[in-house]
Simulated assay, not measured.
Amino acid sequence: MTTTPTRDVVFPPGRKALYERNRYSPAIRSNGFLFVSGQVGSREDGSPEPDIEKQVRLAFENLNGILGAAGCTFDDVVDVTVFLVNPEAHFETIWKIVPDYWGTAPYPTLTGIGVTWLYGFQFEIKVIAKLPEDRPH
């Protein structure tokens, strides 16, 4: 008999239908860590925010919603991967926004990847966070 593994899924408030429609989990708790799927600057209906600066801010707000639902903050993030469409054109615009959400040193690890397509988005951020030991899982 085969059993399906149980995943400890974290859903941000008000966006569960969006994740169910697209068939993925926004975040999974596992072994003391929170693995967060890539977050983009999507509006409530899932469509891209067209303004690049607003899109990046919205991606961080969506990320913070998931982190908060798991009892974390960005201070708990240990690893970050960002995906950028046309990084040569957008990097400076995007990177001037990052300090508003990034916190203070020591910073998490970072991998930045230039891509050609993100489903209509220009920026995506995915993270791994350490679940605080003093907060319930």
Rank of each mutant, 00 (worst) to 15 (best):
P26F: 06
K54S: 11
N22V: 00
A89P: 00
F35S: 07
E61D: 11
D45V: 09
W117Y: 15
E44H: 11
V78S: 13
L131S: 12
Q55Y: 02
L118I: 03
A105V: 05
C72Y: 08
V40W: 01
T81Y: 05
G65Q: 12
V127K: 05
W102S: 13
V98C: 03
A89F: 07
C72S: 11
V85W: 10
D79Q: 12
R43L: 15
Q122Y: 04
D76L: 07
S47M: 11
P26W: 03
E88V: 03
T109S: 14
R29Y: 11
D45W: 06
V77H: 02
R135P: 00
R57N: 10
R29H: 12
L84M: 13
E124R: 01
R135E: 14
D100E: 15
L118W: 07
F74C: 10
N86E: 15
E53P: 00
S42W: 09
E61Y: 06
Y119G: 10
K96M: 05
V127L: 08
V80N: 12
C72L: 08
A59C: 01
A17G: 10
G103T: 03
P26R: 05
Y101C: 00
P132I: 01
N64L: 09
A89R: 13
L67W: 09
W95G: 03
V56Y: 04
S37K: 01
T104H: 11
K54Y: 01
G65E: 14
R135A: 11
T93L: 04
K126V: 05
R57E: 12
T109R: 12
L18M: 07
P106M: 09
L67C: 12
D79C: 07
R43H: 11
Y24V: 02
G114C: 10
S30Q: 07
V77C: 05
L84A: 02
N86I: 04
Y107N: 02
K96Y: 03
R21F: 10
V78D: 00
T116I: 07
